Simulated scan of single mutants.
Amino acid sequence: MNGARRGPRVVFWRHGQTSWNLEGRFQGSTDIPLTETGRAQARRAARQLAALQPDAIIASDLGRATETAAELAAVTGLPVTRHQALRETYAGVWQGLTNTEIQQKYGDDYAAWRRGEPVRRGGGELETEVADRAVPVILEAVERLPGDGTLVVVSHGGAIRTSLGRLLGLEPFHWESLGGLSNCCWSVLGRGGRGWRLLEHNAGTLPEPVIGDDT
């Protein structure tokens, strides 16, 4: 980059595969561990992300995120700081249900959510409330980076999308335009002269299907 100042960079890394991902069940804040495939995904992705020479790792305190983060910690030697604020959206009675079951039992709320209306899915959190709790933790970690440092945030599909939308200055209605992340894929923000910029989205070795709460 010809010695030019790059500024801080934030890598948002989604956790690896879980059994509920495969079963199409809405996980939300339910603490579901990685499958063996999920652990292998995390090991493979960690080797790639280590090449970015991260300066810090923060993660959701849910097991699937901390297990994923541990693979990068093992490669880089960095500690992982866990935050409850980086958990996936709490979705109340929707959690544990399949997409079909949600539509059958809570069809009106589901349809309103798909239209982009602010809905407490299953009586849980609004997407804006997820951003309200997650983004301050991310920005605090960014402020502790060296000037051109890289932060890795290990979290969940919905929490990552809402954080990206907030940091990019998008209106909440348009957050859905940021497509879901596949298991163990990542998005990268860099800070430019007019704020945060999306540098990469849903990056990984090869395209993978998006399975999970964002499907």
Score class of each variant (00 low, 15 high):
residue 42 A to G: 09
residue 43 R to M: 02
residue 43 R to K: 14
residue 43 R to F: 00
residue 44 R to W: 03
residue 44 R to Y: 01
residue 45 A to F: 03
residue 45 A to R: 13
residue 46 A to P: 09
residue 47 R to P: 01
residue 48 Q to I: 05
residue 50 A to I: 12
residue 51 A to H: 09
residue 51 A to K: 15
residue 52 L to M: 13
residue 52 L to D: 14
residue 53 Q to I: 00
residue 54 P to G: 11
residue 54 P to M: 06
residue 54 P to W: 07
residue 55 D to A: 11
residue 55 D to E: 14
residue 55 D to K: 03
residue 56 A to G: 07
residue 56 A to E: 12
residue 57 I to K: 04
residue 57 I to G: 04
residue 57 I to R: 03
residue 58 I to L: 08
residue 58 I to G: 04
residue 58 I to Y: 03
residue 60 S to K: 07
residue 60 S to M: 09
residue 60 S to F: 11
residue 63 G to W: 01
residue 63 G to H: 08
residue 63 G to F: 00
residue 64 R to P: 13
residue 64 R to I: 09
residue 66 T to H: 02
residue 66 T to L: 10
residue 66 T to I: 12
residue 67 E to N: 02
residue 68 T to K: 05
residue 70 A to V: 05
residue 71 E to R: 12
residue 71 E to P: 00
residue 72 L to P: 13
residue 72 L to R: 10
residue 72 L to N: 10
residue 72 L to F: 10
residue 73 A to V: 08
residue 74 A to H: 12
residue 75 V to K: 04
residue 77 G to W: 09
residue 78 L to I: 13
residue 78 L to P: 06
residue 78 L to T: 10
residue 79 P to Q: 08
residue 80 V to E: 09
residue 80 V to D: 11
residue 81 T to L: 12
residue 82 R to S: 14
residue 82 R to V: 13
residue 83 H to S: 03
residue 85 A to M: 05
residue 86 L to M: 07
residue 87 R to M: 07
residue 87 R to T: 12
residue 88 E to V: 08
residue 89 T to L: 15
residue 90 Y to C: 01
residue 91 A to R: 07
residue 91 A to I: 05
residue 91 A to K: 08
residue 92 G to V: 10
residue 93 V to T: 15
residue 94 W to G: 06
residue 95 Q to I: 06
residue 97 L to W: 08
residue 98 T to L: 05
residue 98 T to F: 12
residue 99 N to A: 14
residue 100 T to C: 00
residue 100 T to H: 12
residue 100 T to S: 10
residue 101 E to K: 05
residue 101 E to L: 04
residue 102 I to A: 02
residue 103 Q to C: 04
residue 103 Q to P: 00
residue 104 Q to W: 02
residue 104 Q to Y: 00
residue 104 Q to K: 13
residue 106 Y to Q: 04
residue 106 Y to P: 01
residue 106 Y to W: 15
residue 109 D to K: 02
residue 109 D to S: 14
residue 110 Y to P: 01
residue 111 A to R: 15
residue 112 A to F: 02
residue 112 A to S: 14
residue 113 W to E: 05
residue 113 W to P: 00
residue 114 R to Y: 01
residue 114 R to I: 13
residue 114 R to C: 10
residue 115 R to I: 01
residue 115 R to Q: 15
residue 115 R to L: 12
residue 116 G to C: 07
residue 117 E to M: 10
residue 117 E to H: 06
residue 117 E to I: 04
residue 117 E to W: 06
residue 118 P to E: 11
residue 118 P to D: 11
residue 118 P to G: 07
residue 118 P to R: 11
residue 121 R to A: 14
residue 122 G to E: 05
residue 122 G to C: 03
residue 122 G to F: 02
residue 123 G to K: 10
residue 123 G to D: 11
residue 124 G to Y: 06
residue 125 E to D: 11
residue 127 E to T: 09
residue 127 E to D: 13
residue 127 E to N: 06
residue 128 T to D: 09
residue 128 T to M: 04
residue 130 V to D: 02
residue 130 V to P: 00
residue 131 A to D: 07
residue 131 A to Y: 01
residue 132 D to P: 00
residue 133 R to Q: 07
residue 134 A to Y: 06
residue 134 A to M: 05
residue 134 A to Q: 01
residue 135 V to K: 00
residue 136 P to L: 03
residue 136 P to A: 04
residue 137 V to P: 00
residue 138 I to P: 00
residue 139 L to Q: 15
residue 140 E to G: 05
residue 141 A to Q: 01
residue 142 V to A: 03
residue 142 V to N: 04
residue 142 V to L: 07
residue 143 E to C: 01
residue 144 R to L: 06
